[in-house]
Amino acid sequence: MRDAMIFEGGFSDVSRDSARAFRSAMNAMAHPGRKFDLTGAKPPAPLSEAAAGLLLVLADANTPVFLTGEHDTDLIRGWITFHTGTALATTPDQASFALGTWDALLPLRQWPAGSAEYPDRSATLIIEHPGEGETARLSGPGIQTHQDCALPAITPFRDNAAQFPLGLDFYFCQGSTVRALPRSTKVEAI
């Protein structure tokens, strides 16, 4: 039973489903705060369809994934390693991707934020987020004027953006939908 749950639930047509899921991930990153559908993965709970889809598209043996809190289960470990071939990170500073709820991912400073010469060598946080919290006003690249969006907090994202071009990038997953918040986005409370 457990094995079946690990082996099932990947994309049914890997190359085409991955292409579609990536388009959602890219659209989200290019339009901060806007919601996009990201479907096709059927992971074990509590991993959401969107978060699992992101990992299927992006993670592999070169990108250690760090699982936090309730997402650090044998079943999820097995599912992710079977479907992506990733080596799970054992410490936060190795992580290319970190997965969990907002509280479990704190503090943000434990994740690699890149270097001045290579700001891309930073972690992307995949946050399971029910879509509640504080309403933030976003502006910056990808946003024509402004975009309002519910975030679990304001200050940590403002601090993250202040480090630009260093910093973390975020995906907020809720069921089969995804929103992104790159480090380039200015975050203000309203």
């Binding site: 190359s15 991930a25 990153m29 992006l58 993670a59 592999d60 891309d120 630009f164």
Partner: peptide, 21 residues
């Protein structure tokens, strides 16, 4: 191959997150 696309896709997302880099 999917492995190569994954590597390029990761680079594209970083590129969008750090415009011009």
């Amino acid at each position: 191959d999917e492995q190569t696309k994954r590597m390029i896709r990761r680079a594209l997302l970083k590129a969008l997150a750090i415009p011009g880099y």
